[in-house]
């Protein structure tokens, strides 16, 4: 499922005083199987951008191609797109509505018209992969903890077996352990199913160790699009955009400047430890 954005702009409320150009001439290629981090300050247009990836929003100008087909084509099937690109919204726990966890996860697969058995298998597998215990299947989703709700909501999208998984701030508002667990879970899912994953965040620290490509957004434009290592070498520019690189990476960059022979692709304490012990 390759996705191409061709000079995409999006304007909210055009022609009123609330007019807001949230995306400004974005061009992007998202090939199969990549693990991408989409980073940007609050209001930089991240959520707007990802809603274009499954057709929830249409560009005000520009075009989007999925597997080579334009979304403006007459025979373009939105339903197929929703099946292929799974989108987990910011604070997805607020969209749970069913009487039990398993029913809520089944909502997506049923909408896609999967057979009952297939849908159930997919739902169980999804819940397992996000680490929801079987004893919780018949509990009301409203009775779960925040972190558990988040997992159930993610499972709800995973159960649709998307080829591209887009997650908007999946770790927002969780405690450090919860953040780690959710992100590790996502990394595992991607490893097992070999799907494209786009991880939206405003924290470099969160995505650094997972992704292979970072897209930095600033005021509706793409400011950088490169490997983490390359992006982090622009520390000052990032700071000007209100973003921060991982502390440990900054330390290594500084030491390198002072003349120490150290690598700069160090994003975690573990990696730092290894690099220093060499």
């Amino acid at each position: 499922m390759s996705i191409i954005l061709d000079h995409v702009s999006h304007i909210y409320n055009p022609g009123t005083t609330f007019e807001k150009r949230a995306l400004d001439d974005i061009s992007l290629v998202i090939p199969d199987g990549e693990f991408i981090g989409l980073i940007g300050h609050t209001g930089s247009g991240k959520s707007t951008l990802i809603q274009h990836l499954n057709g929830l929003l249409k560009p005000s100008s520009g075009n989007i191609f999925f597997n080579g087909q334009s979304i403006f084509d007459n025979d373009f099937k939105m339903k197929d797109l929703r099946r292929e690109v799974g989108l987990v919204f910011q604070y997805p726990e607020y969209q749970l509505f069913e009487v039990s966890v398993i029913k809520d996860v089944l909502f997506g697969p049923n909408n896609l018209g999967m057979k009952t058995l297939d849908a159930e298998v997919a739902a169980y597998a999804a819940l397992k992969s996000v680490g929801i215990d079987e004893s919780l299947l018949d509990v009301s989703p409203l009775d779960l903890s925040g972190g558990q709700k988040r997992r159930v909501a993610i499972a709800g999208v995973l159960a649709m077996k998307p080829k591209v998984l887009v997650l908007d701030e999946p770790a927002a508002g969780l405690d450090p352990l919860g953040r780690r667990e959710i992100l590790d879970t996502i990394a595992n899912i991607r490893k097992e199913q070999n799907i494209t994953v786009i991880l939206v965040s405003h924290s470099m620290e969160d995505v650094a160790q997972y992704v292979e490509r970072i897209i930095v957004m600033n005021k509706g434009k793409i400011a950088m699009d490169d490997t983490p290592q390359e992006v982090y070498s622009h520390d000052e520019e990032l700071q000007a955009m209100g973003l921060d690189i991982p502390e440990i990476t900054r330390l290594f960059l500084r030491l390198k400047k002072e003349g120490y022979r150290l690598p700069t692709d160090v994003f975690t304490v573990d990696q730092a430890y290894e690099a220093m012990m060499k």
Binding site: L56, R82, F89, M160
Partner: peptide, 13 residues
């Protein structure tokens, strides 16, 4: 609007 979009993303029609 947000909830509608979220459910649409789950294939709701």
């Amino acid at each position: 609007d947000r909830i509608m979009k979220a459910q649409q993303a789950r294939g709701a029609d």
